[in-house]
Design a protein around this nucleic acid. Structure first.
Lengths: 219, 219
DNA sequence: TAAAAATTCAAACACTTGTTTAATTTTCTG
DNA sequence: CAGAAAATTAAACAAGTGTTTGAATTTTTA
């Protein structure tokens, strides 16, 4: 089926999904360039030729991974919009919590994205990441505007820069996982333990930081 | 001179420094794996064999770059310690400003470090990065403790997590340079303009965020 | 159930990679 | 200035890369 990967749709067969899942873990762990198609084939338990057969090329496989995860994460973010009848402060809290949970769920892909975005030449992927960032920023923006209108948040906040803090903090946490494990005396191979320790701390900290920054000082 | 790169000292010849400077820019722009020794040789205007000749290998060249910059940056941070007779809040401000200035000055290396730290197997480099992080954390820690003792800062702050925010924000800014240029309508190739716009904003924002987070609420 | 289509496979392909070699040129030294 | 040391070079090297091939196998279809 030489016509399968005409990127007409973003749905994938079971075999494709298996290869993608094996690949994203390897890419996240060793980097895209340091992972060979033979590594992927071995991890996914298929023949090397299957990668070209199913995706066209190694680069297109990466593209497929990006399409899948960007779609997933955008979907998760959409859900936040439909959270009504909560205070602006609560909405900010929920946004932050959803961010952290979603990124943690897809941390392999997210690590890959963060690492690869700086050297990204591929337009499909660059645009995918950009659309995610814009969605994120606009989400925060609307929540802050609501709070500003209610008079409890500062006005004239540079949301682009605030977004740097929110995502920078989360990215830094997952990107320095090994270092953090040392700091908190966690076995670096015990991922579950790492998540158990870091996620609550991250949530509490980030919510406190953003809150104290946004709230109008009542001195 | 086959004995040159016995890593007995961290001083480099002029030729070595030229190669390292060319290499760090290429590594930052395209990634370590995506940069070939022939690319480096061309950029530094030397023969390919010179890289092995002067450094032993491409990996050792990266190591040399790490040694040089880690030493540089550690030196810059030392200076902060010698800033006496300032209030704790001012000291925090100075730390943040020095961080941002130092990272901006060495942004090519810093990008490389952030990108490569996740996939780093090399002990020399990993330890170098770790020592920088520990230095950073201990710097912030002592400044915060002074403020806490003076009663103007919160007590019991998780400084490891706070450091995630400080460095995560800065890293995110430089790692998403292209995206930020789009947001602020800056020509993506005009690095000077990018720095002129982003550095002041980054400083103001980060100081405000950390300050509002650390200051004891006087409600 | 037999022909057709889709999948799987080992092998080969062309190419790039980092490194080494050995000859040559340049620089240093006594 | 002559000889040694150091630096530079083009060419060759082995190893690994992503991809393609064409035959074999499995699955689907009619």
């Amino acid at each position: 089926m030489w016509w399968k990967f005409l990127k007409v749709s973003a749905t994938f067969t079971q075999k494709q999904l298996e290869i993608m899942e094996a690949a994203v873990k390897l890419f996240a762990g060793k980097g895209f360039d340091n992972t060979s198609v033979r590594d992927i084939a071995k991890a996914a338990d298929v023949n090397v030729a299957m990668i070209s057969y199913y995706f066209g090329s190694k680069e297109k496989l990466l593209e497929a991974i990006f399409i899948k995860y960007v779609t997933t994460m955008r979907g998760k973010l959409e859900e936040i919009v439909f959270a009504h009848d909560v205070t602006p402060a609560e909405k900010i809290d929920r946004i932050i919590e959803t961010y952290i949970d979603t990124i943690a769920d897809n941390r392999h892909f997210h690590l890959l994205m963060v690492r690869e975005q700086g050297v990204m030449k591929n337009k499909v992927m660059y645009d995918g990441v950009k659309s995610l960032k814009l969605k994120n920023t606009s989400l925060i923006k609307s929540a802050i505007k609501a709070g500003a209108k209610a008079g409890i948040f500062k006005k004239n906040v540079d949301i682009t820069i605030l977004a740097l803090t929110v995502f920078g903090t989360i990215n830094q946490a997952f990107n320095t996982q090994r270092f953090l494990c040392e700091q908190y005396r966690i076995d670096p191979d015990n991922e579950a333990e790492f998540l158990k320790v870091i996620i609550p701390r991250l949530k509490i900290h980030l919510k406190a930081v953003v809150r104290s920054y946004l709230l109008v000082s009542d001195k």
